[in-house]
């Protein structure tokens, strides 16, 4: 059946359209090899520390068994629990890094132009994000990568961006309040830095990426790339921060605290940049 062409006016007024944000270029596109000298040395130190510690503990457990069997089992239990926790931590790090790699892989798939690959990536991503389940049946039905991407952009992507913006605004409010309450400028910096890292983790968790320490570092690097790419983000940040600071209550509390305004603006931008780094769907 042929669909009749048509043109329709929407009911509600809308702001002037802005260009879509540019896709995040994978941070290592022009970068030197991922494993640098420092990373190799650090990895060696970790292997030495953990390996030698493990061997020492092994010897110690054997000695304890020589002293008394119950003492050996007790030592083995303690050592197992300790190394188990360390292993669990490492496993979590690896999973977080793999999740970031997965986002990069999805981004590549969406950019490939291969219809089958794009559709598989769309369906796969829709299963991992909140709200994705609602569009999953439609994705199966349309079986058209352009339409699938448009559905994702209109549904989960928009919701996630709005949620990330909300998190950014909330962090900005906290930063402004914190700066107003903290007496020392040096502590201000620490506080805003900590809030920024926490914000990155919150936004990542929103997108189903639960980063550990290394994952957070990787994410910060990607977010920094995104933030330099996103000229529009700073505009959006300005607007959001101005809206925030125009609250009479905050203005009364802060007076002309320019630093608070800058920090708030940066947190709003950081939330957007992190959302961009975690979102594999290319802008329409």
């Amino acid at each position: 059946m042929r669909v009749e062409p048509r043109i329709e006016l929407e009911e509600e007024p809308a702001p002037r359209l802005e260009p879509p944000l540019p896709a995040v270029v994978a941070a290592d596109t022009f970068a030197p090899p991922r494993t640098g000298t420092a990373a190799l040395a650090l990895l060696g130190a970790v292997v030495l520390a953990l390996g030698l510690a493990g061997l020492s503990v092994g010897n110690f457990v054997a000695d304890q068994f020589a002293r008394a069997t119950w003492l050996g089992w007790a030592t083995l239990g303690v050592a197992g629990a300790g190394f188990g926790l360390i292993g669990a931590g490492l496993l979590r790090e690896v999973r977080a890094l793999l999740a970031l790699r997965h986002v990069d892989g999805l981004r590549d798939a969406f950019a490939s132009g291969n219809a089958g690959r794009m559709m598989r990536a769309a369906v796969s991503w829709s299963h991992t994000v909140p709200g994705g389940a609602t569009v999953a049946p439609a994705l199966q039905a349309v079986n058209d990568p352009d339409a699938a991407l448009a559905l994702l952009r209109a549904g989960p992507c928009r919701t996630l961006r709005e949620d990330a913006d909300r998190l950014g605004r909330s962090a900005a409010v906290q930063a402004v309040a914190g700066i107003a309450a903290i007496p020392s400028p040096a502590l201000d910096v620490l506080f805003v830095g900590w809030r920024g890292v926490r914000l990155v983790r919150e936004v990542a968790a929103l997108y189903g990426v639960r980063p550990g320490v290394l994952g957070t570092l990787g994410l910060l690097r990607r977010a920094a790339t995104a933030a330099t790419l996103v000229g529009a983000a700073s505009l959006a940040g300005n607007t959001a921060a101005q809206a925030l600071l125009s609250s009479p209550l905050l203005a009364h509390a802060l007076g002309d605290a320019a630093a608070a305004g800058v920090a708030a603006r940066r947190l709003v931008v950081l939330a957007r940049a992190t959302a961009l780094a975690c979102d594999p769907v290319p802008p329409g």
Partner: peptide, 18 residues
Amino acid sequence: EDFVWTLDGRPVSAVRGR
């Protein structure tokens, strides 16, 4: 900007702007 418009029960790739 591109968007998907459901016309006559079928999703259609369309555009919108001011």
